[in-house]
Amino acid sequence: MTINNKNTVRMLSVVAAAIWLATSTSVLQAQAEAGYELPDPARYEEAIQRFEAMDEQSPAPEDAIVLTGSSSIMFWNNDAPDDLAPLTVIPRGFGGSVMNDVLHFLDRVALTYKPRAVLIYEGDNDTGRNNIPNDVIVEQLQTIIGRIHAELPEARVYVLSVKPSVARQATWPIAQDLNARYQQIAAADPLVYYIDVATPFLQADGSVMTDIFVADNLHLNEKGYDIWAASIREVLMAHEAQYE
């Protein structure tokens, strides 16, 4: 239907804006009542632009494996290509991101590369710092998977478990519940794989190792990354080596 009346168009625009504002307000109110607030993804705009500048200078390969997620990926960006060789990877970890940030930047941080697979590490900051409910995190992950498969129907998605850490022992039970839900998502979709990077960091009594972190007791040191990389490489090689 074509609308020619300018007043009608203006009125519809006002109504649409009002609906958007009401919806946004209700979402923010719901977050406040639930005791959490989704951080503004715009805080990572410069980081994403740096990736895009890198791509202009040296285009990333297509049909590779994109690695994205929070700082555990970001601090691995430089070493991941060697750690995962001969697999072809595009490291795109950014800051202390949460699942909603990957969802927001999915086109620019992953889909733009037309990857054959996408590996995601999120949930650590969601549960350990921002108090984002697991229901919300899972819904965001499912949306991400849906968007990946809508554009790249044969792409595999690898979801890393949240790792344990000394700094976030208090929220580890919540992260464990989230990990179990990640496993359920992978079990229900033949194109989704769960990678357990939690168990290799646990001691026999179930407590987290204490010699795998830098001074903040949150981020991994060299020993920690050796364990992390080996766990990820084992799963990726089993499924992705055939495509190299």
Rank of each mutant, 00 (worst) to 15 (best):
K6M: 14
N7L: 10
V9L: 10
R10V: 05
R10G: 09
L12F: 12
L12M: 15
S13G: 05
L21K: 14
L21N: 11
A22F: 12
A22Y: 14
S26H: 15
V27S: 12
L28I: 10
A30R: 15
A32C: 01
A34E: 05
P39M: 07
P39V: 04
P41W: 15
Y44T: 03
E45R: 13
E46G: 04
E46N: 09
E46M: 05
Q49F: 09
F51I: 00
E52G: 03
A53C: 15
M54Q: 08
D55C: 02
D55N: 00
A60Q: 07
G69Y: 10
S71W: 06
S71H: 08
N77S: 01
D79S: 03
D83A: 09
A85D: 07
L87H: 04
L87R: 01
P91A: 12
G95F: 06
G96N: 01
H104I: 07
H104V: 11
D107Y: 04
R108F: 10
V109K: 05
V109T: 01
A110M: 04
T112S: 15
T112C: 15
A117R: 00
V118K: 08
V118Y: 10
L119I: 00
I132M: 08
I137L: 14
I137Y: 14
I145K: 01
G146Q: 08
R147H: 02
R147S: 03
H149D: 02
A150S: 12
L152W: 12
A155S: 07
V157C: 06
V157H: 09
L160H: 10
L160Y: 13
S161L: 05
V162I: 09
S165C: 07
R168V: 13
Q169M: 13
W172R: 14
L178I: 00
N179C: 05
A187Y: 12
A187Q: 10
A188L: 09
T199M: 02
T199N: 02
F201P: 00
L202D: 05
Q203E: 15
G206N: 08
G206V: 01
V208I: 10
M209P: 04
M209E: 08
I212G: 11
D216L: 05
L218Q: 10
H219W: 06
H219T: 01
N221Y: 13
N221F: 08
E222R: 12
K223F: 12
G224F: 08
Y225W: 02
W228P: 01
S231L: 13
L236H: 10
L236M: 07
A238L: 11
Q242C: 11
Q242K: 13
Y243G: 02
